[in-house]
Every structure is written in structure tokens, then in C-alpha cells.
């Protein structure tokens, strides 16, 4: 009794100042890889530490996310992955400004950097590959607005997201946080149906993204100025036991001088079914390169068609710790690439 009373008194005495408190969360993962490339065919990795904080005040909120990351190298870099101010004047209207995850597709702003929440151990390649950033423009700086309208009778709602962004940087890895590459701005639009009632857990959506990529003349990273159009679609179902995510995107980049077209299609389907705390999963990814896009090539993105098949299982040990074990094969024109991975992901 005395311990409980002590705790109550402590909380009661602190409660007056609770409004000013900011809760900090930590996300990250520790991995062990086995593959068959290079001199080192197995390695431990502790590549990410994600420090997340949110503070609300009336209709405003601030979200800050610092990512300490060893991405394709043995040194850590610090990146402000999210730095946004939110304003929600009405229950159905929401604005964001700052460095944000773009509202493109499903995976990017559903999981942010939280591998703990992801079913698989790694991102789909269209979002992030092995040591290179994905071709979906998911990190950006600018303004975001979203609105939703209930359809009534527990049918669901329609949501619309609109963003004006600095858009693509000089390469896939660079986010133009300080200065845009040019005066053109990227425009991102997303429309969704979000199910409720009998269709609770269903999300069906489509995207259109328009941007202008400025030319880069740096040796080894050269690419021309391109006008970009991306069309995307996604269908998701998150039930109590079933997990289904499907996404596809068509990238059409046009050289603004020569008018040469570069087309890329990326798609994946991810499926899981839960048995208590265990969820086995399967993911199939497809990448078709119509003609290699110099902008993607300059950033190290693969230049050939390939498919990736991943199978594994996730065990959610607690509300803060999950373990995953998966194997994958990349089917490509030359030798196939095999990889196994064990991961401990946490969210404290």
C-alpha cells in the first residue's frame, strides 16, 4: 500500500507540470546477415538509432526525429529525419510543414523508420535498398495538407493529401533541407479510401507526383535535367490476423533537352498471417527498367530487371521488442543473390 501511495503522490505532484514534459522514444535494430558476396559473407550490424519526440500544444504539435545511422558504411551520420510542425484547425483538416515523409504510397509514412512495426526485416527496394536509397521520393521538405470526409453509416472515409515540396535533390540520397536545387517545386497528391465497419483495415489509394530534377555535372554522378511524373497505387488490408500490402509505381522521367524517356516500374506484394505472437510472411518484389534512368543510375540504383522473393517470420516478444528471421533471393540476369537475416527490432 505504501509503495502505491508513494507512486500516486509522486504522480499527483508532478501532474501540474506534465503538460511541459516531452516523452522521448528510441527505435532501432540489431541484425545478423549472411550472404555470398565479397570477402565477408556474414556480419553483425547495429545500423540505426532513432530518437523520436512529440509535443502537443492546443491545435499544434511538434514532431522531431533524429536518425543516427550507418548507411552503407562503418561510421554513423546524424540526420534530422523528421522536423515538422503540425496544425490541426479542424477534426478533418491537418497541415504539416517542415521535413516530412511524403504521402506517397503506403509504406513510407505508415512505418517511418520503425522497423519494429514493419512485418519484414527490410524495406521494399523501391523505398530503400542494400546501401542505397529507393526511387520513391519519400524524404522531403515542404508543406503538407490532408483532409478527410466520412462517407457515413460506418462505410468508411475518403482522404486527400496534397503536398508542395522542394522535391528531388541532386541524387536519391540527398534531401534538400536547406536549399532547393531550383525554383520548380514537386507536387504530390494522394487520394485514399479508408474502410470502417465491415471494411475496417482496408486502405485503397492512388498517387500522382510531378517534379523537375535539375542536372548534376559532378563526375561520376552526372545526369541530365529531367521532368518527372510518377503514378502510384496501393491496396492494403490490416486485419487482426491478416496482413496484406501491395504497391505499384510507374516512374516516367524525361530528359528536358533531348526528350529521351526513361521508364521504370516497381511493385511489391507483402502477405502475412498471424498465429498469436508469430506471423510468417512472404514478399514478392518486381522491378522493370524500361531504359535505365541516369538519375537513378547515378545514385547506385540497379540498372537491370530483377525480382526479389523474401520469406520469413516475425515474433513479437513484447510491445517493445520483436525478432525476425528471413531469407531472400534476388533473381537477376547474372548470378542470383541469396541472403539470410536475423533481426532484433525495438521500440522503447
Amino acid at each position: 500500500m505504501s509503495a502505491r501511495v508513494g507512486a500516486i503522490i509522486a504522480v499527483a505532484c508532478m501532474a501540474g507540470s506534465a503538460r511541459g514534459d516531452t516523452v522521448i522514444n528510441f527505435f532501432g535494430d540489431v541484425d545478423y546477415y549472411v550472404d555470398h558476396h565479397g570477402d565477408t559473407t556474414n556480419t553483425f550490424q547495429a545500423p540505426d538509432l532513432d530518437i523520436f519526440a512529440m509535443q502537443t500544444d492546443g491545435k499544434f504539435a511538434f514532431v522531431g526525429e533524429l536518425l543516427v545511422e550507418a548507411f552503407g558504411q562503418n561510421t554513423f551520420d546524424i540526420d534530422a529525419d523528421r522536423l515538422e510542425v503540425d496544425y490541426k484547425p479542424l477534426a478533418w483538416l491537418h497541415f504539416r510543414a517542415g521535413r516530412i515523409r511524403s504521402a506517397f504510397g503506403y509504406y513510407g509514412d505508415a512505418y517511418q523508420n520503425g522497423k519494429f512495426f514493419m512485418l519484414t526485416a527490410l524495406w521494399p527496394e523501391m523505398y530503400e535498398g542494400n546501401g542505397f536509397d529507393g526511387i520513391v521520393p519519400s524524404h522531403t521538405v515542404g508543406l503538407h495538407a490532408d483532409a478527410s470526409r466520412e462517407l457515413g453509416n460506418d462505410v468508411g472515409r475518403i482522404t486527400l493529401d496534397a503536398e508542395v515540396l522542394n522535391g528531388r535533390g541532386p541524387n536519391l540520397d540527398t534531401v534538400t533541407v536547406y536549399q532547393d536545387q531550383g525554383n520548380h517545386k514537386g507536387i504530390d497528391l494522394r487520394a485514399r479510401y479508408v474502410g470502417e465497419g465491415a471494411l475496417d483495415g482496408l486502405i485503397v489509394g492512388a498517387n500522382m507526383y510531378i517534379d523537375r530534377i535539375e542536372s548534376d555535372l559532378n563526375v561520376g554522378e552526372e545526369h541530365p535535367a529531367e521532368a518527372e511524373l510518377i503514378l502510384g497505387a496501393h491496396a492494403v488490408y490490416m486485419g487482426d490476423r491478416a496482413h496484406v500490402i501491395t504497391e505499384a509505381a510507374w516512374f516516367r522521367d524525361r530528359d528536358v533537352v533531348t526528350q529521351t524517356l526513361y521508364e521504370t516500374i516497381a511493385a511489391f506484394g507483402e502477405f502475412g498471417y498471424g498465429f498469436g505472437d508469430y506471423m510468417p510472411y512472404l514478399r514478392f518484389e518486381y522491378l522493370h527498367i524500361g531504359s535505365p534512368d541516369p538519375y537513378f543510375v547515378a545514385s547506385g540504383f540497379p540498372t537491370y530487371d530483377h525480382e526479389i522473393v523474401t520469406a520469413g517470420a516475425k515474433y513479437t516478444a513484447t510491445a517493445s521488442v520483436a525478432f525476425k528471421l528471413q531469407g531472400s533471393v534476388t533473381v537477376q540476369p547474372t548470378m542470383n543473390d541469396y541472403r539470410a537475416l536475423a533481426q532484433a527490432a525495438f521500440a522503447f
Partner: peptide, 16 residues
């Protein structure tokens, strides 16, 4: 439920 709440917070969709 706790994981769902955590994810919504991390997405920036729900106050902590």
C-alpha cells in the same frame, strides 16, 4: 493494442 497506439504516435497521427 499498445503496439498500434505506438505506431500511430510514431507516424505523427496521434498525440503521445
Amino acid at each position: 493494442l499498445l503496439i498500434r497506439i505506438k505506431q500511430q504516435v510514431f507516424r505523427g497521427e496521434m498525440p503521445h
